[in-house]
Amino acid sequence: MTTLDNTTVTPVVIGAPRGGPDAPTLRQDRWWIQPLVTVTVLTVFVVYSTWAVFVNKDYYVGIAMHRDLISPFYSPCIAGSCVAGAKGTAIVANWWRITPALIVIGGPLGFRLTCYYYRRAYYRGFWQSPPNCAVADGHRRYTGESRFPLILQNVHRYFFLIGVFFNVILTIDAVMAFRMPGEGGIGVSVGTLVLCVNAILLWLYSVSCHAARHLCGGHVRTFSTHPVRYRLWKLLTPLNGRHMQFAWASLIFVALTDLYVRLVASGTITDPKLF
């Protein structure tokens, strides 16, 4: 039964005098630090990841160095131009001539762009809408996420599924990093641990996502008739409370993982074998 037809527009007087000084904000604390930090970290990440995507080299540490480490920006490497050894999948896009990272980057980027936490962060930081609580919005008109293009934020759940797909790939990469090709057998190097931590953080970020919480059980009206969904929902809810921390940790670590692989692949550092 819809309730749309029997509701009238809220009668309000627009433009009635308001109290308080007519100032953008009366806050005396350093409210600008939070958006400034957001803008700084996200800008650094965007600049670094753009460079890493287009540099198109040093993204794989292979048999020559007795390792099997691939940058998360380039995995799965399914383009014909991928370096030997990095092609770990059956699907090879031979027609793809430019950097293979461009095939990969869209899914995780879309997941983070439409993420409920990042939306809060960049609406505050970049779009100044608002810069912080009780600080005047930087725009005269405002339609929120009710119109194009921001209405497209509603596709977040699909990007969540795409993100899970990439998590599976990166988990396989982390498992493969235990191989020490050329030396024989398996082992653990710093690179192995870096790829493992990266995969764990990405999983934590994904399963703590609000869309995951909704899809696994949040959408049901009665938990009592859906006990499995309820258990899942109850499991994810505390993780969801730390979604912001997982978002930042996984974002920063994915860049650090790429940097580590890049430094090892270029010969700047060696990847120490622990055991």
Partner: peptide, 21 residues
């Protein structure tokens, strides 16, 4: 009751940009 269309069309749920203030 199903209030979802009401929330979308008349109650401005889409206007919220979840800045959490």
């Amino acid at each position: 009751n199903d209030r979802r269309e009401l929330l979308r069309q008349r109650m401005g749920l889409g206007l919220c940009n979840i800045t959490k203030c």
